[in-house]
């Protein structure tokens, strides 16, 4: 009896490190089986059978969110400091040029390559500019950090950060 109890105890403790303490797991067990007592053999055996059958029941306390669920919406006021937050999905997919344009890849650029012509496959490798409405949206979805220019050396996007060669878009001379 003692051995089974000890074994169960060990199982529980091994399960513990993922969560704050063993207490909620034990409590949950007693909730699921209200007739059982902690010291009885019944509890131990039941617990071990449960551990064998439904590992997840012991391991996962219900109603307690373990981590923040993933969200892709823009956070306008964070919990801690009340600040705006970046939508990370935007930064992972788009790149902002210094003049305010955003570039992106092409959808389906690795899919069904067998039926696409060489010319089309070449076009899929290019990066495209977003239009004005899309750029305006993306600007709103990121914070000031991403909107400030980044001055990297040996930057492959360096020629595209300014539009000095276009007479209408040029900024210099002011």
């Amino acid at each position: 009896m003692l051995q089974t109890l000890l074994r169960v105890g060990r199982q529980l403790t091994t399960a513990v490190p993922y969560y704050a303490s063993a207490a909620p797991t034990l409590l949950q067990c007693s909730k699921v089986f209200p007739g059982t007592c902690h010291n009885s053999m019944k509890f131990g055996s039941l617990c071990s059978t449960i551990a064998k059958q439904h590992n997840s029941l012991l391991f996962q306390p219900t109603n307690v969110p373990l981590c923040e669920p993933p969200t892709r919406t823009v956070t306008k006021f964070s919990l801690q400091k009340g600040k705006r937050k970046t939508v990370k999905a935007v930064v992972k997919r788009f790149f902002r040029l210094h003049w305010g344009g955003w570039i992106r890849t092409v959808a389906g650029r690795h899919k069904k390559m067998w039926k696409k012509s060489a010319k089309r496959r070449h076009r899929l490798k290019q990066h495209l500019l977003c239009n004005s409405t899309q750029s305006y949206l993306l600007d709103k979805m990121v914070t000031k950090f991403w909107r400030t220019p980044k001055y990297y050396v040996e930057d492959p996007y360096e020629p595209y950060h300014t539009r000095e060669e276009h007479p209408i878009a040029r900024r210099k001379p002011a």
Binding site: R72, V87, A89, R93, F95
Partner: peptide, 27 residues
Amino acid sequence: RLGYETGNNPFYLRFQMEPYYKGHHLR
């Protein structure tokens, strides 16, 4: 919410990820 297109695959999620900003905090 910003970027939501009433059920469409939203524009800001439509494309594959690209490591444009990879390691930016170290560069």
